[in-house]
Amino acid sequence: MQVAARLMQDVVAIARRSEHGRGTVGMVQVNPNSRNVVPGEVKFSIDMRNISDDEVAKMDAALRATIATVREQTGMAITLEEVSHYPAAPFHPDCQAAISRAATGLGYPSRPIVSGAGHNAVYMSYLAPAGMIFIPCKDGISHNEIEYAAPQHVTAGANVLLKVMLDYAKVASGED
């Protein structure tokens, strides 16, 4: 378990070496999972994301090098299995600019955020330019049953989305 904990910390450390890197250990299975037995096996998930495929590849190489070093130092059998891989899907610059203009025009603060969002925006980016509008969540927790966003933040996000859509509709119709 101590070796697994070290590797889990290394996942985060590797991600932090890159400006836009994200490294998460989200699932841990300990066997036999008893409070007074030294685990014989620990499995855990690793999710590494970054702004480009090249940056993810660098993170992957660093992780593999770390695992090789830990294997050599401890003599433990450590395996790494890739379960899934999705190419990076950066937000489209035009969408990012439209969101920024809308937020600024409505008097809301805004800043570009690199997201590792691996859901809707990724799949939409295969079909059309994509972007996302982020709003604050209490304690930074999102995609979780305890996620909470204040009504005024939800309203602000919806207003930004509405303004972006209306601005795109004007461009599409030739208005301006």
Rank of each mutant, 00 (worst) to 15 (best):
R17Q: 15
S18H: 15
E19R: 13
E19G: 06
G21W: 03
G21K: 07
G23V: 06
V25Y: 00
V25N: 04
G26K: 03
G26L: 02
V28K: 08
Q29E: 13
V30D: 03
V30G: 02
P32V: 14
P32T: 13
P32H: 11
N36Y: 10
V37E: 08
V38G: 01
G40H: 13
E41G: 01
K43E: 14
S45Q: 06
S45C: 07
I46N: 02
M48G: 07
I51H: 14
D53Q: 08
D53V: 12
D54F: 12
E55I: 11
M59H: 11
D60C: 13
A62H: 02
L63I: 02
L63G: 04
R64H: 12
R64E: 11
R64L: 11
R64Y: 01
A65G: 07
A65L: 06
T66C: 15
I67C: 07
V70H: 06
V70K: 01
R71K: 14
R71P: 04
R71F: 02
E72F: 02
E72H: 11
Q73G: 03
M76Y: 14
A77I: 05
I78M: 05
T79D: 06
T79K: 07
T79E: 07
T79Y: 00
T79L: 01
E81M: 07
E81K: 11
E82A: 14
V83C: 01
P87L: 02
A88G: 07
A88D: 08
P90S: 09
P90K: 08
F91R: 05
H92R: 03
H92P: 01
P93H: 08
P93N: 04
P93E: 08
D94G: 13
A97D: 04
A97P: 05
A97T: 10
A98I: 09
S100G: 12
A103S: 10
A103N: 08
A103G: 05
T104R: 13
T104C: 00
L106H: 02
L106G: 09
R111I: 01
I113Y: 09
V114Q: 12
V114H: 09
V114E: 03
V114Y: 06
S115W: 00
S115E: 04
G118H: 10
H119I: 05
N120W: 02
A121D: 01
Y123Q: 13
Y126I: 05
A128D: 00
A128I: 12
A130Y: 10
